[in-house]
Simulated assay, not measured.
Amino acid sequence: MRVPTVVDARGHRCPVPTLRLRRALDGLPPGSRAVLLATDPMARIDAPYLMAALGGRVVSVEEADGVLTLTVETRAAPTD
């Protein structure tokens, strides 16, 4: 399994964390994972909306010491 791309958006407010995540996902192959680190609580809401719009999914959401760690996965490649 590939190492996930880490997007560190700690200290930034909405919409910056989600915009950075979107930019990172644009360059990833289908089925890839990314980890968003954010201190803005809106990331807990915005990231799932982004992933739904892109056809991906949120794998996990964790919070520790005021930092949200959201692991997301891009849409898998279509199978024929």
Rank of each mutant, 00 (worst) to 15 (best):
10 R>G: 03
16 V>M: 07
54 L>H: 06
75 R>L: 15
53 A>F: 14
7 V>C: 02
74 T>E: 03
3 V>D: 11
40 D>G: 04
67 V>A: 09
40 D>S: 05
52 A>M: 11
6 V>G: 01
28 L>Y: 12
30 P>G: 11
55 G>M: 02
17 P>L: 02
17 P>C: 01
28 L>A: 10
31 G>A: 14
9 A>Q: 06
47 A>F: 03
40 D>M: 11
13 R>W: 00
50 L>T: 02
43 A>L: 06
21 L>F: 03
79 T>P: 04
41 P>T: 05
9 A>H: 03
75 R>W: 08
18 T>C: 04
14 C>S: 12
41 P>A: 05
19 L>N: 09
63 E>S: 12
35 V>K: 06
54 L>N: 03
46 D>N: 14
25 L>C: 05
72 V>D: 08
17 P>V: 00
61 V>P: 05
48 P>M: 09
65 D>P: 01
18 T>W: 02
53 A>C: 05
30 P>N: 11
19 L>G: 04
25 L>P: 05
36 L>E: 01
49 Y>H: 11
34 A>T: 11
27 G>Y: 06
50 L>H: 03
43 A>M: 09
64 A>Q: 15
16 V>E: 08
66 G>Y: 14
21 L>S: 02
30 P>L: 05
77 A>W: 12
30 P>W: 09
51 M>N: 00
63 E>V: 15
46 D>V: 02
10 R>P: 09
22 R>G: 03
33 R>N: 06
23 R>F: 05
34 A>Q: 05
16 V>Y: 01
42 M>W: 08
44 R>G: 07
41 P>G: 03
17 P>T: 02
78 P>Q: 01
31 G>F: 14
23 R>L: 12
13 R>C: 04
48 P>T: 04
54 L>P: 06
44 R>D: 12
64 A>F: 09
62 E>D: 15
34 A>S: 08
70 L>V: 15
